[in-house]
Amino acid sequence: MHIPDGFISPQTYLPLYAVAGVAWVYGARSLRRQLDADALPTLAVMTALSFVLMMLALPLPGGATAHAAGIGLLAVSFGGWMGFMAISLVLMMQALLFGVGGVTALPINALALGLIGSFAAAGCWRLLRRYNESVALFLAGWFSIVLPAILIALVLGIQPNIAHDANGAPLFFPFDLSITLPAVVLPHLLVGVAEGVLTVLGYRYFTRLRAKLAR
């Protein structure tokens, strides 16, 4: 889902770099307060899992591809800020070291997948866990993918209105909202199901594992 370079106008990514910068500084402070050496191995494994998931494309009906991201699992296990920082790390590595997802698109990807995705999942988990843990985990995973997809579709779809030449031809991403919303969001309703299942199974597995190790 993450956007490559050349699709986003400077009018979009420069202000969003400022917003993401503030969020990264706040997230780093929050990380320093919350970080526990005992929790680090699990956080490391989940971050690595998220990296692997983002590198593997799932084929979708119609020939498109998408990927799960592990955002829900990170957020329900470690909270919104930790999830945001871990996903930001994964996106930075992909953009800077491997050319997957753009450097100019990094703030949008980080804010959409990392911040919105993590806080949607963490909020869903906190609100619903008292009623039904499995449903809460599933919905946390589902929203962690679907809400970022909507945001990314909106950012992509407004590019032709924001940046175009004198004749109205788009300078960056060429498709408008009428195309990006269904093209991005509809496949991610399905990917969200995979992410929801991953969150349920992953959370249960890591909870059992931590209980075993604690004995």
């Binding site: 680090l40 191995p41 956080l43 490391a44 971050t47 690595a48 990296f51 590595m93 070291l97």
Partner: peptide
């Protein structure tokens, strides 16, 4: 050309992440 081929990317990325968390620990 991509810096690293697609299969190596995953292995290198996982190693870098685990290494960074190791140092953090």
């Amino acid at each position: 050309k991509p810096v690293v081929d697609r299969y190596s990317r995953i292995a290198v990325g996982v190693a870098v992440i685990l290494g960074m968390f190791g140092f953090l620990s």
